[in-house]
Write a protein that binds this DNA or RNA. Structure first.
Lengths: 182, 182
DNA sequence: GTGCTGATGTAGCGATTGCTACACAAGCCA
DNA sequence: TGGCTTGTGTAGCAATCGCTACATCAGCAC
């Protein structure tokens, strides 16, 4: 025996890297296995079936995302909501975050369609982002909890519009809403 | 000959109905053909190849969406931005709109990934929605153009959060942002 | 009639899909 | 030593994928 000792834990990072690059729609067993240095046969052996693999992979990706947010967390807290939004939207242009973003819409689409695993992963990622956003609210903000949810809604709308070529529409909307400095 | 005289124009409505129900991910030629009462052979004959079919179909769906928005357009204009948002989000619970919404995330995912046809359809649908929203702004609104873009951003964010089980997060955000009556 | 064009049915191709059958080798426990 | 569990390779299955080859039939121009 070659004793490569592949397990879910060693497989998941490579699988995640593959779907972050190629998306979930094209994630079939043989390409996934090749990316992870094993065979489709072994993926089924370790995860049971494809659906379980995807579910576990999505959950793992949610923790990856969580870690990426933590790593991105600046040491100093923004002074205003405007600054908070600007900083977060700026971070979205980071290539690592771009990969998450493109994958994110796959996950949203799956969640909206009720595919198993997608909804849970999406909910977890949004909960983490909300928590992170609450910690990023200005210290003197009159309503940090509500404000974080407000900014969250605006940010997600901006990201969506940007994904479909309406980034300028969102930008003008943020200006009109007083959420970006004029 | 049976003279069924199928053309792109007669095919597209049935194809659209199928993807509105089953999504774009599972849209392979044989099920599509069955839904349209023809064969995969004839779909290729009429559209050339699958990619061209999807592109034309997305464009057609964009016009469908446009028509649905027009049909939904109430005769009286909202008096406030709050009322405008409430009415639009309320319309999103219409079953016909729900089908569009679920499909919408497929389109966003494809657009974010750069799939041919997806970006154009998404952009067109958003442009139409923005135009519709501008027409729905209160008559005495101080900044109808900017306000429409602001509401658009907020609405899209709300829809996205709702799609992943964070509808209450968005709702609280709208409240905190003064976009819904307390 | 003859030939051409457009529309359709039947059949099938090679590739890919998720998954399985089977053999086998290493280690563990009795 | 002998069986059992665990991990792995090879091979292949039935289904589905997008697409094509080929024959056929209706209608039209001449």
């Amino acid at each position: 025996m070659v004793q490569t000792q592949l397990s879910r834990e060693t497989l998941l990072p490579k699988l995640a890297a593959h779907v972050l690059e190629h998306g979930l729609g094209q994630a079939s067993l043989r390409p996934l296995a090749k990316a992870a240095g094993t065979s489709d046969r072994m993926l089924i052996y370790h995860f049971g079936n494809k659906q379980a693999l995807i579910t576990e992979l999505l959950s793992y990706i949610a923790t990856l995302y969580s870690g990426a947010l933590d790593a991105m967390l600046g040491d100093k807290r923004p002074a205003t909501r405007q600054e908070c939004i600007a900083r977060i939207l700026g971070a979205g242009s980071d290539p690592a975050m771009q990969a998450f973003l493109v994958l994110w819409w796959d996950i949203v689409a799956g969640a909206a369609r009720g595919l198993p695993g997608y909804g849970a992963a999406a909910e977890e990622m949004m909960a983490k982002q909300l928590e992170w956003l609450e910690g990023q609210m200005p210290e003197d903000d009159p309503d940090p909890a509500g404000g974080a949810r407000y900014l969250m809604t605006v940010i997600e709308g901006t990201l969506m519009l940007s994904a479909v070529g309406h980034g300028d529409t969102a930008h003008q909307g943020l200006l009109a809403g007083g959420l970006l400095p004029a």
